[in-house]
Nucleic acid binder design. Structure first.
Lengths: 305, 305
DNA sequence: GACGAGCCACAACCGATCGTTGTGTGAGTA
DNA sequence: TACTCACACAACGATCGGTTGTGGCTCGTC
């Protein structure tokens, strides 16, 4: 591919060979092999050089694209100049949404979004070890108990919505208060114990007398949404910016939880001595995008106050 | 890359090897070579299989993308299942704009836009020979004088705009008539004689007593625009949907030509027995997009009436 | 019209590459 | 302790892909 592009650019095999530091014969062979593979003639050879055929013309942009993608793939992992690597705990929640927004406004910055499937501590350790450049998590411990090189900045205050089906008693509500939820069953299957999320929802449940039910097999979000759409009693909580997709026929309602609005605070976590040039840009972007303060009364967990 | 993706999908080298019809050892070698090249570990080997490292996770989507691009590159030229290949005489004029629109509404259809730099006859010959699937041109001869397998459909009726700089006497006009243009000099450098375009503009000039000036060296569109921006007398004609880009400082004006509006009629040209499945879709799309009839009085060349 | 220059293709050769078979190592398991 | 499973290492052979050498073609020039 590289040889083909070089030959197309040079207009003749000899110069392309020089540019690639190989012989003209090698270029000829490579092009011939490519043509044989594709079963198509890419150049018309003339005594003045080689000109692209129509097929060659059509192929050229694809070849260039291939080289671009290869360079990006390389840049994504090669030590020293790899893309900014950020861990999110799910590709559907606020951190992923904000990263997508960051990518839109800074399309030139190479970004790799990975999911380590780890809690705060393991993810922080990964940042400390340098396997990822940053992660988004709720920081539940004071700064002095973190590894010394680690820095955090609170960049997300995520409010909640109640997700219910059309037959649920709250289906028509414009907003609900946490106190109102006490009478209803909140279902959040698959939330593991002893994580930052369970800490948060346990404290929330205790504060407002909620019943948050985490039992039941985990069949994934699609199954959860299908169950909720169908049930007159089940409901679940989700972050305001969480991306859920469901068929129109489900007729699910997203109802803001307010007065007070429970806030799930999340921080960007990075290493102070990480020299990646894109890191401060991400931080600035997130700070600028922060909804601060959310309007109306809010509720925060103890560790977030 | 293919081996890496297969191994990542399988979760172990053995199954990937089976899927690729090679031995486990070969997979191991390929992955090791890739890792050595990238200077990064992509898998953690366990007695249960191989799991992606964070680097591997980051690399995987790029690897998949590379394979996709490769498949598209292949499909763009491989005989039998290549992309729909359409010739336009310029990437800036209406046909290219309409193709882009077609691509937006049918993103799944592989499309290759090429420029043969040929007149109607040569382009029609190319369609007849099968080097391109279709071309856009003004058809100046009756259907019976075309090769028997060739079909045409008039799909574009392009109106014109006058392009002038801020010091031109017509700079402030909301519209101009062809008759008004008789007093002004129209500059269209680089328009070769004995082509469909020169035929058209010669007839237009004769019909309204215009002075269309085709002399002068061709430095390209950018140079033309710069000259026009600067001149109080020069003007040029352009198709309504022609994409021109110029700096704001040029302050160029695009003034519709109306009463009557000179129409440049263009047809899609294809071979009746071309079995490419995307061809009828393109034709239908173009017919649906056709502005038919353009409102207000129009002027057409003899061969277009 | 002969000749040289420029460019690409073909042929012979040779070292590197890549896949194969065979074997070793380590972790989990009966 | 022995067995299984999965990956790594080693040796070997075919193929690949590069180089050098050469020939054919076209064009410009004398």
């Amino acid at each position: 591919m590289r040889t083909f592009v070089a030959a197309a650019d040079a207009g003749q095999f000899q110069d392309a060979a020089a540019a690639l530091s190989i012989t003209q014969q090698a270029v000829s062979k490579r092009i011939a092999a490519l043509e044989k593979d594709l079963q198509v003639r890419l150049f018309t050879r003339t005594p003045r050089g080689a000109q692209l055929t129509v097929d060659g013309q059509a192929f050229l942009p694809h070849a260039r694209e291939l080289l671009r993608v290869e360079a990006r793939a390389d840049a994504s992992v090669r030590p020293g100049r790899r893309a900014l690597r950020v861990d999110v705990h799910s590709r559907r929640t606020a951190p992923a949404v904000l990263l997508q927004d960051f990518h839109r406004t800074h399309p030139r910055i190479e970004l790799d979004v990975v999911t380590l499937d780890a809690d705060v501590h393991a993810a922080t350790a990964a940042v400390d070890a340098g396997t990822v450049d940053a992660t988004f998590h709720a920081v539940t411990v004071p700064a002095r108990r973190l590894p010394p090189a680690i820095r955090t900045a609170r960049v997300i205050d995520e409010r909640h919505e109640l997700l219910v089906g059309p037959r649920h008693p709250l289906a028509a509500a414009h907003a609900v208060t946490p106190a109102q939820l006490a009478e209803h069953r909140i279902w959040m299957p698959g939330m593991a114990v002893d994580t930052e999320w369970s800490d948060y929802y346990d404290e929330l449940a205790a504060a407002f007398g909620l019943t948050i039910d985490r039992i039941g097999p985990v069949f994934g979000n699609e199954a959860l949404l299908a169950e909720i759409a169908d049930s007159p009693t089940l409901a679940t909580l989700a972050g305001e910016r969480t991306r859920y997709l469901w068929p129109d026929s489900y007729d699910l309602r997203r109802i803001p939880v307010r007065d007070p609005a429970p806030i799930y605070p999340m921080s960007l976590i990075w290493r102070a001595d990480n020299p990646h040039p894109a890191l401060p840009k991400l931080r600035d972007h997130l700070v600028a995008r922060r909804v601060d303060p959310p309007d109306g009364p809010v509720w925060l967990p103890k560790w977030g106050r």
